[in-house]
Design a protein around this nucleic acid. Structure first.
Lengths: 126, 126
DNA sequence: TCGATATTTCTATATATATGGAAGTATGGA
DNA sequence: TCCATACTTCCATATATATAGAAATATCGA
C-alpha cells in the first residue's frame, strides 16, 4: 500500500465518532447498516453522519449501496486488512518483536491451519 | 486498550512526516535515533521535528532517552503492538475474515512456534 | 565560565477538520 | 404530481493541527 493511502485510512479512523462508527459497522458485518440507523445509534445529526461516512468512504474503509430509500454502509474488510498488513509489514522489516504478538490474537490462525481453539467462532457474549 | 488512547495513537500516525518518522524509527530498532539525525534525514527544521516527536511520544508510540547532548528516540514496540491488537481484536468480534490474513504476514509466527522461513531475521538489504 | 552543539519551548500563522442547520436530491407510495 | 422519508451537499463557524523562526535550556569540552 502507498504511504498516502495509509495516512488517509489512519486519519479516517483517528477520530472518535468515526472510530465508533467503524466499529459499529464491523459488528454489523457485510450486511452493513443504513446511514440513518447509524446516526440514531451514535446520536449525531444526519448531516454530520453523512460527512463522517464520506471520510471513511473516501478512505476506502467502507462501501455504500442503495437499498430503496436507505443507503447502506458496510466495512470494506479488505481495505482494513491491507492497512493492518501495511502497518505490520512495515514494522517487521528486520525485527519480529512487534509482529510476533499478533500471532497470539485469539482469532489469528496459524498459517498452516492446524487445529486450535478457534475462538473467533464464538459470539461476543459467549 | 481504551478508545481514546487508540485514537491518540492513530492520530499520531496519521500524518506524513510522523508516519515516515515512525517508520524510520522502526528501522532503527530499539537503539533508536537522535532527534537531530531524524530531522536531517526527513529534511525538516529541528523545532518541527521536536513537535512531531512530542506527538508520537505523548501517544506512547516512542520513548526518549538522553545520551550526552543528543536525545535518542526509539519506538515503543509494545504500544504499537497494543494498537494493532486493539484494531484487530475489535474486528474479530464475530468475524475472522479481517484477521485471518494477518496470519499470512511473513513475520507473523504461528502461535505454537513451528519451524518456518523466519524472514524476520534477515536484514533489510539482504 | 565561555562557547559550541543538540534539542525544546514559545509564538505566530496557515491550513485542515468537525459540526450541524438549511436547502437540495433521490426514492417510494398514493 | 404530491408528499413523506432518507440522505447528501452547501455553508458558516469553531476547533485542532502543522510549520518553523526565535529564544530558552541542557550538555560537553576547554
Amino acid at each position: 500500500m502507498e504511504l498516502l493511502l495509509a495516512i488517509k485510512r489512519l486519519s479516517a479512523l483517528a477520530q472518535q465518532t468515526r472510530l465508533e462508527l467503524f466499529r459499529l459497522l464491523v459488528k454489523a458485518g457485510p450486511e452493513g447498516m443504513a446511514a440513518g440507523e447509524l446516526a440514531r445509534r451514535l446520536d449525531v445529526p444526519a448531516s454530520t453522519m453523512s460527512t463522517q461516512l464520506l471520510v471513511l468512504s473516501n478512505a476506502g474503509l467502507v462501501r455504500a449501496r442503495r437499498e430503496g430509500r436507505s443507503i447502506i454502509y458496510a466495512v470494506n474488510f479488505e481495505a482494513m486488512r491491507d492497512l493492518l498488513v501495511f502497518l505490520t509489514k512495515d514494522c517487521c522489516g528486520g525485527r519480529a518483536e512487534m509482529c510476533a504478538p499478533l500471532a497470539s490474537i485469539a482469532c489469528c490462525e496459524p498459517k498452516s491451519g492446524e487445529k486450535h481453539e478457534a475462538p473467533a467462532r464464538t459470539r461476543r457474549g459467549g
